[in-house]
């Protein structure tokens, strides 16, 4: 178990290193470069631009630039933003809380609604509830996030006035009720897709489990229906859901970027959007590495959880 985790950890570090090379190279090869925007700035001479290049180390060959940057990553110096010269880690750190809050709320919605509908649908396969949820999940899977976001803002904010149209709770208002009120819209929008995914996966996992021989054995023992469902079916059907955590966290993160833009939510999504607009290379690279760490570690967590939860993978 510990050895397995260790091996996966080493793999993860190697993977992260590869991501850093690919990410850096792609950005390096992008035409324009970080100083392109100054070319049209009135009053900037060619000398000024070259001086800036020297200052930022952009005149160095690419491998040297990479090593400087990557070396900094390891010791926790992720560079400084071109925009306001604040450290990249600080910039990300100031935004990540809001994004995590949003992701957490969306996951709570997705897991509770998704798992419950998936289980109910499977238990009464082809029943009325199952058919309705099947249609609804198909719709949810096909709706683009930005469009659904606009729809929610239009209906629940503009027409009905139930929720604020965007932003987190205003500065100075730190009651949890207000925070929750602001969270409803974006969490719902962000959670919709995941809810559908969880529901579909859970439904098929429960159906697959129900068809297993050991469920017949349990019925043959005269096990009560409720115990059959919670003890035998769910224990087995929830195992593959652990894998889904590893898959869903990254996609939720990606979805958060879009949702945040629609709801002007002060999280990572807007930071990413703004950084690209400003060609703030250190922040862009920092976010790339950050999201890579998130993806890799969520898979690592899922794998580890699997090893703990499934007795067949446990080592004695």
């Amino acid at each position: 178990m510990v050895r397995r985790f260790g091996a996966r950890l080493i793999q993860s570090v190697i993977l992260l290193w590869i991501v850093s090379i690919v990410g850096f190279s792609l950005l390096y090869l992008t035409p324009g470069g970080p100083l392109a925007m100054f070319a049209e700035t009135p009053g900037m001479t060619q000398e000024d631009v070259e001086r800036l290049e020297r200052q930022l180390g952009l005149d160095q060959p690419a491998p040297i630039q990479y090593l400087r940057w990557a070396g900094g990553l390891v010791v926790g110096d992720w560079g400084r933003s071109y925009r306001d010269d604040s450290p990249v880690l600080e910039v990300i750190g100031s935004r990540i809380g809001q994004t995590f809050k949003l992701m957490l709320a969306a996951t709570a919605v997705a897991m509770s609604v998704g798992l419950a509908t998936g289980i109910l649908g499977a238990v009464r396969q082809y029943g009325r509830f199952d058919r309705v949820t099947t249609i609804l999940t198909m719709i949810a899977l096909s709706i683009p996030t930005f469009w659904f976001g606009l729809l929610v803002i239009y209906v629940f904010s503009q027409r009905l006035g139930w929720i604020p149209p965007g932003n987190a709770a205003p500065v100075g208002d730190d009651s949890w009720l207000s925070a929750l009120h602001h969270l409803i819209g974006p969490a719902l929008v962000l959670g919709l897709l995941s809810t559908a995914v969880w529901s579909r996966y859970m439904r098929s996992a429960v159906l697959e489990t129900l068809a297993q021989d050991y469920i017949r054995t349990a019925r043959a023992k005269g096990v009560l229906r409720s115990r059959l469902l919670f003890h035998h079916v769910l224990r087995n059907a929830l195992l593959p859901m652990i894998t889904l955590i590893g898959l869903e966290l990254p996609s939720l993160f990606g979805g958060a970027l879009v949702t945040e833009t629609v709801f002007t939510w002060p999280g990572m999504g807007r930071l990413f959007f703004d950084s690209i607009s400003y060609r703030d290379y250190p922040v862009i690279l920092g976010m790339l590495i950050f999201s890579a760490i998130l993806v890799i570690s969520s898979n690592l967590i899922a794998d580890t959880l699997y090893g703990v939860a499934d007795p067949r993978l446990r080592r004695r």
Partner: peptide, 19 residues
């Protein structure tokens, strides 16, 4: 079932709950 009528099934690997 299980009290007055007992059952033994074919494949004991798939007939026992793995978890």
């Amino acid at each position: 079932r299980g009290s007055r009528i007992g059952f033994v099934f074919q494949d004991p690997m798939s007939s026992l709950n793995p978890v």
